[in-house]
Nucleic acid binder design. Structure first.
Lengths: 223, 223
DNA sequence: ATCCTCTACCAGCAAAATGCGCATGAGAAA
DNA sequence: TTTCTCATGCGCATTTTGCTGGTAGAGGAT
């Protein structure tokens, strides 16, 4: 079970992370709200432990953003505030539980178990869109004006990179890293290959979006 | 939203019932554990507010009984005890939340909303349907246009996963998790096997529903 | 400007790897 | 026994990959 711990107090962060790992949870931790959003975008967590007071972007704002984006990963808010009103706003913003510091570690674990016990509700598959394109990474389905098709896994991962950063040039290095992972040693030519595949796909669904090459840099998705 | 309130203190029972009704909840109330079980058997509640100390049969025992019977209606335990250990046992017995008296009414309401917000877990008794199919998980009976048949337990569990999320691709991982449980280590090939069985079943009852494979992802039930 | 060269990129092919369907048989449970 | 569950194995289709020959564009020399 993958848990993301967001807590700016370094001591508490480390000790909590350690304790949860003792309980056989798989814990990533970070220290501010923006970082949290970045982590969450990258990894599908089963649970998020979210401190309410955070630098850069506070917990409630992170929570609201997540729910707005359709991410419904369970969230337990952690907080030093004990006011009833805070609890209520916290819960009504979409938190699944609310613990006031200092809390007992065993109680936290019990509440985590309680939440993880229930069937994980998969977030409704979110489609990425750009121009006349729509792509669901779950089902690897690409839809355009004249039809739809199913991409292979690599094609999907590659297209997703572009859809997440539309109009922005992505370097070959970035793409290789994202699509093939940091410790893969595929030939670079492979990327060319997949760009070719993707372009064919775009044409086949009749999209007017283009993958233009930025010579000696990389590629960019534009309309 | 139908709520069952189980609380032996008459004053608290009445005032809580009244307050919750003000909040537009549909509240039944009763005063001891046996009564509670009786009510629950009769009516499908969306939530149960369960006092821990009750005459005849205490809250924890009621809760255990329910879970043993496969009733997974959410339960919030209410209690005068504040010991951490009590919370932990309560939660680990299958409660969804735990409030210590005296609690704030608004906080209770917020926690109720939190629990009701998530998709109601279908009671396993009801028949699941999709397209021209109907399946009762209790009797493992699958009915289609040209006939009916009885599935094995695994087949049933697997089909149920699909019927609960029609048209949505389910990953092999999700399916293994749902059907075989989190700590089983069956070979993946087994899943292929059961997909094959299920497809045969669908054909045998003449359904036009199809289990399509989404390569490198999983499967999807569609019409 | 024209030509040349060099590099980065494109297109396609064919071999290798992988994912999946289906069959069979052994063991467990009913 | 019969039924259910599971592992294993083969074969097919798709995906992934490395490779090769060819093209386009940048920049320098003439």
């Amino acid at each position: 079970m993958r848990i993301l711990l967001v807590e700016d107090d370094k001591n508490l962060n480390f000790s909590l992370k350690y304790s949860l790992e003792q309980e056989k949870f798989d814990v990533d931790s970070c220290f501010d709200g923006e970082e949290a959003l970045y982590y969450i975008e990258e990894t599908p967590y089963d649970l998020i432990l979210l401190d309410r007071m955070l630098p850069v972007r506070d917990g409630i704002s992170v929570l609201k953003q997540l729910r707005k984006d359709g991410v419904n990963t369970p969230v337990i808010l952690l907080t030093a505030l004990g006011e009833v009103n805070d609890k209520i706003t916290g819960l009504d913003c979409g938190a699944d539980d609310y613990l006031v510091k200092p809390f007992d570690l065993q109680e936290l674990c019990a509440r985590i178990r309680t939440i993880l016990r229930r069937p994980a509700q998969l977030s409704p598959l979110k489609a990425l869109t750009f121009a006349d394109l729509s792509f669901t990474s779950e089902s690897l389905t690409l839809t355009g004006p004249t039809g739809a098709c199913t991409l292979s896994r690599r094609e999907g991962a590659l297209l997703e990179s572009f859809l997440r950063r539309p109009n922005q040039p992505l370097s070959r290095q970035q793409l290789l890293l994202k699509v093939w992972g940091p410790d893969s040693d595929v030939e670079e030519g492979n990327l060319d290959n997949y760009m070719y595949f993707l372009r064919r796909r775009l044409r086949s669904v009749g999209s007017r979006a283009r993958l233009v090459t930025v010579r000696s840099v990389g590629y960019r998705l534009e309309e």
